[in-house]
Amino acid sequence: MNVLTFDHVSCRYPGQGTDIVDRLSFEVKPGSFHCILGVSGCGKSTLFRMISGLMSPEKGSIYVNGKPVCGHGSYCGYMPQKDMLFPWRSVGENLALPLEIQRKLGKKEQRQQVEAALAEVGLAGCADKRPDELSGGMRQRAAFARTMLTGSDLLLLDEPFSALDFLTRISMQEWLLAQWRKTDKTILFITHDVEEALFLSSSVLVVEHTPIRALREIPVPMDFPRSRKDLARPEIIDLREELIGMLRKQVAE
């Protein structure tokens, strides 16, 4: 069964004349890692908002694990662009948010899960720190751990590393790939950075037009585990140029 299915989905923002998504259909297989690549403002984030139930499509249906998305609810693990760690909560309390909202576990079990999740992302012992005591990369790792604690099989990451400096960003990319390989989660990752998309994804989903009518799936011919050196291979460089060309065409339009 597909983790995610879009079935002829159309969507428009109130007060706008044209659709931003127009009869879009696509499917995502379990355990895959896709980057959705597109220029700023092309509607990538709108897709995420619909999958997470924050926005309803005008026409068509979206299915997560075969169940239709309808209204607010916990369909997926959504990680927004900013880390969104609440400054009035400690790091551990921030991670506990999805658990508190699900109301399935007692305080003690929540705490155990939070500790385990923090250790998993290399932040063991940070539970009682304030978010502003963490560096940018650590904050993103904490936010990722919080997303994992939603327990969803489908993770939606919306440009999570775009605010980080270059070196932190590439080490976070490597780290994310390692995390993904440890689990059986499906990851959809929005980015406008071509190299990031190539490095991370098993196949890139390119947004070529707004309104979005289709996502063009372009497989990345690299095996996992990857290293950044693989990006220098000639076929990858050609692919990168091709992708950049596709994006520039869209900016020109």
């Binding site: 908002r49 139930g53 607010h72 609810g73 916990s74 959504y78 927004p80 969104m84 909202i101």
Partner: peptide
């Protein structure tokens, strides 16, 4: 509003 949306995506 983004914070509220994050919680809503958790099913809040």
């Amino acid at each position: 509003i983004e914070m509220a949306e994050l919680l809503l995506s958790y099913g809040a």
